[in-house]
Design a protein around this nucleic acid. Sequence first.
DNA 1: TTAGGGTTAG
Length: 618
Amino acid sequence: MERYLIDLLHCSLPINQLKQIQALIIIKYLSLTPLFIRRLLNASFIQYARQVFDQIPHPDQGVHCSFITAYSRLSLNNEALRTFVSMHQNNVRIVCFTIPPIFKSCASLLAIDVGKQVHSLVIRYGFHSSVFCQNALINFYAKINDLGSAELIFDGILVKDTIAYNCLISAYSRSGEVLAARELFDKMRDRSIVSWNAMISCYAQNGDYHKGWIIFQRMQDEMCEPNEITLATVLSICAKLGDLEMGLRIKKLNDNKNLGSNMIVSTAMLEMYVKCGAVDDGRLVFDHMARRDVVTWSAMIAGYAQNGRSNEALELFENMKSAQIKPNDVTLVSVLSACAQLGSVETGERIGSYVESRGLISNVYVASALLGMYSKCGNIIKARQIFDKLPQRDNVTWNSMIMGLAINGFAEDAIALYNRMKEIEVKPNNITFVGLMTACTHAGHVELGLEFFRSMRSDHNISPNIEHFACIVDLFCRSGRLIDAYEFICRMEVEPNVVIWGTLLSASRIHLNVELAELAGKKLLELEPDNSGNYVILSNIYASAGRWQEALKVRKLMKDKRVQKAAAYSWVEVEDRVHKFLVGDTSHPRSDEVYSTIDGLALLSTWVGYELDFEIEA
DNA sequence: TTAGGGTTAG
């Protein structure tokens, strides 16, 4: 009977049958309890296993060990440590196998002191010469960023196995010591798949994507078959490089190997697609996945938000909630960014309150996205209140606030904030200067804007990029200095893009400079022959100057090239419903009220100095 | 021992 029970315990059984077996064990075969507990732990019935464990008067080392391993594996790290401490206090002999999971839990909890105490215990017990403990120690010190101690342990190992090398490579990788990792990798005689994966991941994590790809190719040349972990890592490299062709090669490899549908590989694949701009392909991967966790959902939501498809991002966020997946800080960052892009005040505020109530504001990513959302939705007071009480700020948070003030017309406050940023020695970066120049543009401070532009290179050693050039063009344009803007464009060290010509074109239209408008318009037609807006604006400019023939010629050109004019929608969000409007649209049930509100707003705008601009429609 | 998601920019 006992033999039969043991066999049964090795089968996969539902909890009800396990409970029947337990009854038998209690009555007749008490000695089988440890085996029974292990069976429960393997089947992840951890709470039930604990109830059984707590009934045992003197649990042996084996059962303790099983609990520690199970707790650590399930990231129940505090439980793992508590069990270890009780084992120690109850004089149950510590066994070598308990040590690696304990170090893992200490590292996850960043319980540095506890980990070091366990280290002395390891020495006292004489486990320090066990390869299991040595490798666990290297990992522990690596994870708490004590690379020196990790190296010391490694150097002290007499016969170093592959795992020890792998552990130190990943320690170097975590500390950004790419060259040291590579040196160690090159020294290895027997590389396992983990060694290859660790080296690829080292390059990927430290931004050297091409080198990561080269190691991946060498791995295949040396007949080491990539596994799922390799593919997930390499897919993330393709995503970072935005290289769809490379990504599709990995997809093919994954299909050929029939590796099945690992959730992490699928999420990496989804990510690869969306980062390469193939959002719909990413969505197909998402839809075909058998299991999706919070990372998968967040990756897809971010994919939409980053590709300007914010409506779909918010829609998917609703689906995520319906699927009972709890959003985390990463999810909320993308959702806030989507709200900001759409100007969805109500949804944004709801997420904002949720973020504050969950205390997620201490995460700088969340904080920056939240500030951006409030600023773009026009609630600069709320944005500033949040900024002032933030527990942690990095340069992105500062930039987000500076930009918020800038776009809302508070140039002086933006500049004052920049001065404070410098006082407390937060380093400004290229985006800070975009914010400062935007502030100057909106307030008409041309000379100050130019001063910031000069200062970024001379005082901060930051080379201006196309965004900064665009800011200067905008700075001149908005103050009506079109010739200065044009001369600046001609002197620029980079090729002007559509943003720059577009800025000059709309300014020329406002200031009725047909000559410059014509020039900018023609450049735009060359750069973006499929954008209907450029044809319409250029044609309108000719028309407003009375050059009707040329206006018609542009219209004809547009027709000949079969450029489609995309319908321009406006939308207003009222109590969670988005109302969409086309030009001249009277289909809304409250259309009369809508139009009379628009007329009222137009009147109000003219009172405060805005000049209405009625376009000739295409 | 190796693997996937995030913020600021006209």
